[in-house]
């Protein structure tokens, strides 16, 4: 069962995020899974659906420092990673850390900045360090990037290539809220003051999130479940409509996401159901598919034999 110490902060996190984003419990659950898996999140959806709200709420709930970058075509890599400034008083160059050194970084409309700037961010996401003037600066141990992009506008955008999308653990869409959630949202907006969300307290104490992430990493994954995962990977690569298959990194991320999901379900082990549940978000971000990826993922999941009994 889930470690009792982890229940409370997770529940608090869940409550806070559900308060910030109404009617999207399933999306929030996957966001939490992505956080616990230690991966980065890509939110792709139309404007005004709460991507930034969710990201800000998540950042506040995690605690720590929060940075936000609005990606524009004139954004430079140094604007992300930071740069050195010459101090006239000390007559030395001083490093000015960029937004990437925050615990939580919200990168809005990542597809609007140039590939050069995208690379700088994605490199930091992958290596958890930033190199400026040949000096490596480590990032936060819980460095978590939430990137957003608009699937509608294509003019003046620089779509992330599949190879770089692989840096993200999951890609989620929020979608429109249902009517009751919209009612609640509107009612809450009337009653609440501006910037009320800024007052939410962090859900995790210092080091607690890291501990939980470490706990997730040791969730039991049985050999038959790993075999199942490998079979799924093979099936994806062999699918005729897949142009870019699942990489070993993707396989690792999928397993980690499954571990996070099983942790959230209160189990100490991963089941094939866990893998199937997180398959969509994990695979959507990294597969190259002709046509709709959902159909391909459904085909694959419906074709591979699930291990029911131990080897």
């Amino acid at each position: 069962m889930m470690n009792g110490a982890a229940i409370a902060p997770i529940d608090r996190l869940r409550r806070q995020l559900n308060t910030a984003l109404l009617g999207k419990a399933d999306v929030i659950e996957r966001v939490i899974a992505c956080l616990l898996a230690g991966g980065h999140l890509l939110l792709e959806d139309k404007p005004g659906l709460g991507k930034t709200t969710l990201a800000k709420a998540l950042a506040q709930a995690i605690g720590g420092t929060f940075s936000r970058v609005q990606c524009t075509p004139d954004l430079l890599p140094g604007d992300i990673t930071g740069f050195s400034v010459f101090n006239l008083k000390t007559r030395e160059f001083e490093f000015q850390a960029g937004p990437v050194f925050a615990d939580v970084l919200l990168t809005d409309e990542i597809n609007r900045t140039t590939p050069r700037t995208q690379s700088a961010l994605l490199e930091a996401m992958a290596e958890r360090q930033a190199t400026v003037d040949n000096i490596r600066h480590p990032l936060s141990t819980v460095f978590f990037v939430i990137a957003t992009q608009n699937p509608i506008e294509h003019h003046g955008t620089y779509p992330l290539p599949e190879a770089q999308l692989d840096r993200f653990a999951m890609k989620l869409s929020i979608g429109y809220p249902d009517k009751s959630s919209q009612h609640s949202m509107l009612a809450a907006a009337v009653a609440c003051e501006a910037d009320a969300g800024n007052r939410a307290a962090p859900c995790f104490s210092t080091g607690e999130l890291r501990a939980i992430q470490d706990r997730v990493a040791v969730q039991v994954v049985a050999a038959n479940v790993q075999s199942y995962l490998i079979d799924l990977g093979e099936a994806i690569r062999n699918h005729p409509r897949v142009t870019l298959g699942l990489s070993p990194r993707g396989l690792l991320i999928w397993q980690r996401a499954g571990q996070a999901w099983s942790f959230l379900q209160g189990r100490p082990f991963v089941t094939p159901d866990d893998l199937r549940t997180v398959a969509g978000p994990v695979l959507n971000v990294r597969l190259g598919v002709q046509g709709e990826s959902e159909a391909v993922i459904r085909d694959v999941l419906n074709s591979v034999t699930v291990p029911i009994y131990p080897n």
Partner: peptide, 14 residues
């Protein structure tokens, strides 16, 4: 229980 037996037999039963 079947999931426990199939995927976590080495763990202590629930």
């Amino acid at each position: 229980l079947a999931e426990w037996a199939a995927y976590a037999a080495q763990l202590h039963p629930p």
